[in-house]
Design a protein around this nucleic acid. Structure first.
Lengths: 104, 104
DNA sequence: ATAATATTTGGCTAAAATAGCAAATGTTAT
DNA sequence: ATAACATTTGCTATTTTAGCCAAATATTAT
């Protein structure tokens, strides 16, 4: 069998990104960032969870290269640096099923 | 603060899909299915892991609605029913970063 | 320099995900 | 009916992830 196999390095990077998105809080965070940068404290208020937890979630997103952070004064602002994740979510909302009949 | 929040039900579904993709073996499986349906045994050979493990991975993908299965004779064939996941992967390969300056 | 505010990091525990083995199921061949 | 083959399911050990508290760090205000 000669099936397509993607380079392992690429797969690992993609997995890291999907893993980062695979949590309700983090996915909401990404959605919230669609309209512009936000300060850590905004997420804390929005979710009502511990600051440390918010910070950890944001660092997962940052390590995956989905968001970047910038310190200004006392605050740290996060913003989306890989907007295509929003398109991915949109695509999934469309529930875009399509039966396959491409093989045999 | 009045930030965008996505409906929780939608978020949960999206999380399930991202979670399903967030594993190197499963992501490779999806890639391999890009060219058409494949039988469980093909995956088993390709990865050299236990049949039970292959089967479990496939069921994660099926439960998330990414693939569907069809039994024919002794074999079970899986195929992609949500091809947009391939576009998502392609998008991530392009490493499409873009600094934001959209807020203030 | 000290205090107050905002965020991150270390340590910990509970919960979820992974992978293999063995047993169960379903299908075809004898 | 029995055997052989392909796949799934039950169980268990191991690893990873999540979330809280407390402590550390950095910045601004006093």
């Amino acid at each position: 069998m000669n099936v397509k196999r993607t380079d392992e390095k690429i797969i690992r990077k993609q997995v890291e990104i999907f893993k980062a998105l695979a949590h309700p809080t983090r996915l909401q965070m990404v959605q919230m960032l669609s309209e512009g940068e936000l300060c850590v404290c905004v997420f804390q208020e929005a979710f009502g969870i511990d600051f440390s937890t918010v910070s950890r979630h944001l660092s997962v997103l940052r390590n995956a290269g989905i968001v970047s952070d910038e310190k200004r004064g006392k605050n740290v602002f996060y913003c989306l640096v890989r907007p295509c994740v929003l398109e991915m979510c949109a695509c999934l909302e469309n529930d875009g099923h399509c039966r396959c009949g491409n093989a045999e």
